[in-house]
Design a protein around this nucleic acid. Structure first.
Length: 264
DNA sequence: TGTGATGTTGAATG
DNA sequence: GCATTCAACATCAC
């Protein structure tokens, strides 16, 4: 589920639920998603810590702790947060939970276990290590154009690459391609400078709009891809062609034949 | 019942 | 060493 706008939404939820809360106790039901320590050690290092805030970069959410370390939450395909008081509100797929001293509990749910949870002593070291690119909302044109130099991969492939720009996922990339009128399988090295600049502008426009207006896919405006062309048998809202489903960069891809030009 | 899924990674390949 | 591709991860929903 979560791409940049959805993780932005998780951040709002997390900040309201956890800022200035002190962790009294940690429950770990399944430590498979905790990638750099065992469940008991994870519980131990978090117990007694106060959460001071959070930082989002792309799809990564870093929860800041009062000892200068961070708890990294990456939601994978379908991670979710759930704040509750009553144990009966615990989600079926909760993998671990932070119990705060005020009696509230913040559960991290993840049915498919694709989430990645890490306890980090140095956030910047980690970002460097995984080569995480700049957040899409803070992307600069000159940097973006420079990243595209010498690349031979597809347009979709480059936009999904989190080292180039952080935060775009499968659905929003299709929307960006739709709006640029470029076929997602277009080759980066074959595109004109004007086309690259157009892509840059649409990245920002789509991310800004989605972040400000639509926390969940289902809440998108009626003329957005989610309600129209990005569906089996969907219609191009602008009536320029036929919706096709294919695979690009290994991912299911929707585009409108006749509207989106293949540049190669 | 089989198939595909909104993400990332590490191995394999070029 | 870098760019790129692809299978694997684990489980659920349709």
């Amino acid at each position: 589920m979560p791409e940049l706008p959805e993780v932005h939404n998780f951040k709002q939820y997390f900040d309201a639920a956890a800022t200035n809360q002190v962790i009294d106790r940690v429950t770990v039901h399944d430590d498979k998603i905790i990638r750099n320590m065992s469940g008991p050690v994870f519980a131990d290092v978090l117990t007694g810590r106060k959460i001071t805030g959070s930082i989002r970069r792309g799809k990564y959410l870093f929860a800041q702790l009062d000892n200068g370390h961070d708890l990294l939450l990456h939601f994978g395909m379908n991670g979710d947060l759930n704040l509750y008081q009553d144990e009966s509100d615990r989600g079926r797929f909760e993998r671990f939970a932070l119990h705060f001293t005020d009696g509230n509990t913040l559960g991290f749910e993840d049915s498919r276990k694709f989430a990645r949870i890490l306890y980090l002593e140095d956030r910047l070291d980690y970002i460097e290590q995984i080569k995480l690119g700049p957040d899409a909302l803070e992307l600069e044109e000159a940097y973006f154009l420079q990243q595209l130099e010498g690349r031979k991969t597809t347009l979709k492939g480059i936009l999904l690459n989190q080292s180039v720009v952080a935060g775009l996922g499968n659905l929003y990339v299709d929307e960006i391609c739709y709006r640029t009128r470029l076929h997602p399988a277009s080759r980066v090295n074959a595109m004109t400078l004007e086309q690259k600049k157009l892509i840059y502008r649409e990245i920002l426009a789509v991310m800004q709009y989605a972040t400000e207006n639509a926390p969940y896919y289902r809440d998108y405006p009626e003329n957005w891809f989610w309600h129209t062309w990005r569906h089996e048998g969907g219609q191009d809202p602008e009536g320029e062609g036929e919706v096709k489903i294919t695979k690009v960069a290994g991912r299911t891809t929707y585009y409108v034949e006749g509207r989106q030009k293949l540049v190669e």
